[in-house]
Nucleic acid binder design. Structure first.
Lengths: 343, 343
DNA sequence: CCGTTAATTGTAACCGATTACATAAATATT
DNA sequence: AATATTTATGTAATCGGTTACAATTAACGG
């Protein structure tokens, strides 16, 4: 069960009676090596099953062609879509991905950053954990000049590059849409506004209300963990509000769906009694009845853009140091759950 | 913008006026080094911001503490859940993950295998692409004695270890359940039976039919790509069948849901006219109305089990060479879509 | 045919850790 | 105090590439 001995450039060199330097150059397709020698070397390499040793190379080159990715959780539709986008770009460019999840814990996130750091990733793509308060754990990376790009859940720092959508505007559009459908009392279901995404969505929501002179009071704000189950709990709260809302803007589709189902159970008609707008364009939004109006959040593109920018920076094609924020387009997708005025 | 110089054990040794050997040992917490010296070294390391160079270490040790993962696609609920399970175990054990997706293409899968191989992963976890016919591209790994564990989409090889559920039995249970609910003409929506998962599910379905003396003809078999959209297309086919089925077993929830929605649109009542059973226990199964009866597929556990077994093998705790197959428990989750006999 | 330049190839010093073996220091034994 | 043990540290080879610089060979012009 002994591992077969690895073939090295020394073996190739010995067999061909040439120097390892020539072999090394040939394998990198260095034009300085004559075609005949190259041919010989390539053929022998193939024949002997040679494979280059990345560690020896990285040790010398001090780069790893590896990108680290840290996300709050892997098993959400949105995140897995982003990662698919990242993988696509990275793979095409010959970069490897090492991935870890923080499970929404700042502590685990710090550990992951340290691990990535020790693994000498060339750069890092990060979506912050829910309870990450400060981002000092990234300072070691800055000191070593390792680029970090945040996406979706970003930090309000000045020194880093962020890829995200305009959450404020999207939330504003979502809320405005409800208003235009005739809603007068619009509630908002979201998570504790600690992270940018929730803060911004809340702001956009409030801005729309203010603009159309609709009142806002705190009992219109329902804070939860945005899970589907939590949406059902939110439904109970909604029903308990004296002046029942006639429209709800939810910060994610999962929770919106949970809430809708529970309300329907309670005999509420959607959208007639309460209209809904969600966020993310998750697959469930097309399954629930009526289909959920939502904000299309381009996860795959976000992954591609983040990875592309990081790699361009690493390869020197374009630098991100001057880029502070990249905003992706998002748009309202109108479906049945909000269409009070059916035409 | 020059990268700060890395601190090495040489720097530490020089500063403390001791040898690099002692430093190296101390950092690995080798008991042979005295506590005092260790303390000094740890403190200085901390102070100077030393981090070990994995490449130098790997170069020496010939192991990478890295596991490769190749999946057909990252952005599916099931796969991302499996990966979350893998990540959890790997991370706890100090292993890194490098992940790539084959996008259901055998060609891309081969490339990924090669990349993983060149990156010297210690082991590989693979779920095969849809159109992978033979698995000769894994032979290089076997030759170098790199363990490979397949999960979910496995190969019918004898030499490899597979982690999966008993698809045949699960499909049998699903179909039997429909029969017990009074269904007489049961259709099956699935993908081309090339991969084990679809072959086995088809067999289980047929076995149940046979056992209860129900007929099977090819027009009860609807082949598609199992997407939600494809489910809608399947609905059209269903409606076109002269003797319309009164029960449908679908090989995944997404497609089942697409089909259900389209049939409801066409005025079919579920489960009264047609009962449904899906597969996977995807979140959408709890959103569609009526809720979809399905097979609970323990993705997270599957990821954990696969990773745990691979790592145990790598660390020598337990070997997988004798293990051919690990079956995980799956079970039927009965919900409204199949309950014709409401009690 | 010889000197000069261009095209190839070789030599050897890294990159930063690990570890077998040798050596020195501290402690125990007689 | 001298010797045997144990404990702690050091020396140097090794892992497999990369690359600056030196050396060799081939091609060219006169």
């Amino acid at each position: 069960m002994e591992k077969e001995k690895e073939v090295t450039i020394y073996d190739l060199a010995r067999k061909l009676n040439i120097s390892i330097a020539t072999v090394s150059r040939a394998l990198k397709d260095d034009p300085v090596v004559s075609k005949k020698t190259k041919k010989k070397i390539f053929e022998l390499a193939e024949e002997m099953g040679y494979r280059s040793n990345h560690f020896a190379r990285n040790l010398r080159n001090k780069r790893t062609d590896t990108i680290g990715v840290i996300v709050p959780r892997l098993n959400s539709y949105f995140m897995s879509t982003v990662i698919a986008g990242i993988e696509n770009v990275a793979n095409n460019e010959g970069f490897n991905l090492i991935i870890s999840q923080s499970s929404e814990s700042a502590q685990k996130e710090m550990n992951s950053v340290k691990t990535m750091f020790n693994n000498r990733v060339d750069g890092l793509l990060v979506s912050l954990a829910y309870d990450t308060e400060d981002i000092t754990h990234f300072e070691t990376l800055y000191r070593k000049n390792i680029p970090v790009i945040f996406f979706d859940r970003v930090a309000e720092q000045d020194m880093c590059t962020n890829v995200l959508i305009d959450n404020r505007r999207a939330a504003y559009e979502a809320t405005k849409h409800l208003i235009q459908q005739g809603c007068k009392r619009i509630a908002h279901i979201t998570a504790t506004p600690k992270r940018n995404v929730y803060i911004d969505r809340l702001e956009g929501y409030k801005r729309a209300l203010a603009e159309f002179d609709l009142p806002f009071s705190n009992d219109q704000l329902i804070i939860g963990n945005l899970s589907q189950e939590d949406g059902a709990l939110a439904a109970a709260q909604i029903l308990a509000i004296p002046e029942r809302p006639d429209g709800i803007f939810v910060a994610n589709d999962n929770s919106a769906v949970g809430c809708m189902l529970a309300l329907k159970q309670a005999g509420i008609r959607i959208p007639e009694d309460i209209a809904f707008v969600g966020f993310n364009n998750d697959p469930v939004s097309k399954v629930v009845e009526p289909n959920l109006t939502t904000i299309n959040y381009p996860g795959y593109e976000m992954g591609e853009v983040a990875a592309r920018n990081l790699i361009n920076h690493l390869t020197g094609i374009a630098t991100i140091t001057s880029t502070n924020t990249i905003l992706l387009r998002s748009e309202l997708v109108v479906r049945g759950s909000s269409l009070k005025n059916k035409t």
